[in-house]
């Protein structure tokens, strides 16, 4: 191999948790730095190259302010592969909870001088604006999956990350289903795995950090919740959570509004 592949880490509107996951790859971090040139990762290094070209660009965060659109298009133009990391970048993130609501009123709630603020009406995923080569789910993303994406891209194969339900992970782990054993509302059946069934492991229902799985028949699950006595306002909240901006969840929550 000649030059090391160049990696860039970029941030839009986010909590930094996903890029922190990269720093959290303690055991692998130095090994990774041997394999790739970490060319732009402002959270970790003062050597930045915001305008360079990248073999892989990891993009965290959602698009929620006008300047971020230009930034994103520029990153796309300079990157061979653009990978979104986390729920903000793939589904708009928790801040997408403002979508469809009166942003001006929101600004006035938070800011003393709203006239200083410039923001877009909606917090949107990266894929709404530019082509995305791979979307890594999670709020935050999973460390192992991040390493899998990077290693897979390095050898040129598709990441071995399956679009399966949390249920399957939960059952592999031998967790007793919280929905069946005590009617605890759990989004696991319609949520993309990857967290290793974290919430059920901690005896609580999944709240959808990894977003909807493919074929997420949310209405069938909502029907179950309703049979167990969940009222519409709660159904709306349940599907309008951390990944409430994702199509399947958004549609379902809207249905109960």
């Amino acid at each position: 191999m000649n030059a090391k592949p160049r990696l860039g880490v970029f941030k839009l509107a986010s909590c930094d948790g996903c890029q922190l996951t990269l720093l959290g790859c303690e055991d692998a971090l130095l090994a990774l730095a041997e394999r790739v040139e970490i060319a732009h990762f402002p959270e970790a290094s003062s050597r930045t190259d915001a305008h360079g070209t990248f073999d892989v660009a990891l993009v965290e965060g959602s698009v929620s302010a006008p300047f971020q659109l230009d930034e994103l298009r520029s990153i796309r133009a300079r990157s061979k592969r653009l990978v979104t990391i986390g729920a903000c970048a793939t589904a708009g993130g928790v801040q997408a909870l403002r979508n469809g609501r009166d942003v001006r009123e929101f600004i006035e709630t938070v800011y003393a001088s709203p006239e200083y603020i410039s923001t877009l009406d909606a917090s949107t995923p990266v894929s709404a604006h530019v082509a995305v080569d791979y979307e890594l789910r999670g709020c935050p993303i999973d460390k192992q999956q991040l390493l899998e994406v990077i290693t897979a891209l390095l050898v040129g194969r598709r990441p071995e990350i399956r679009d399966e339900s949390v249920c399957l992970e939960c059952k592999r782990k031998g967790i007793v289903c919280v929905l069946v054993k005590r009617d605890e509302p759990c989004l696991g059946p319609v949520t993309h795995g990857g967290c290793d069934a974290l919430c059920p492991t901690f005896d609580r229902g999944c709240y959808g950090c990894f977003g909807p799985k493919e074929r997420a028949p949310t209405s069938a699950l909502a029907a179950r919740f309703a049979r167990d006595g969940m009222v519409p306002v709660e159904l709306v909240r349940r599907f309008r959570g951390i990944t409430g901006g994702a199509e399947a969840f958004r549609t379902e929550s809207d249905r109960h509004e």
Binding site: S64, A65, V94, Q95, V103, I107, V110
Partner: peptide
């Protein structure tokens, strides 16, 4: 970019 937590927390459980 602002994320408006204080605003969208209103109405949540």
């Amino acid at each position: 970019a602002p994320r408006f937590f204080e605003a969208f927390l209103r109405g949540r459980g």
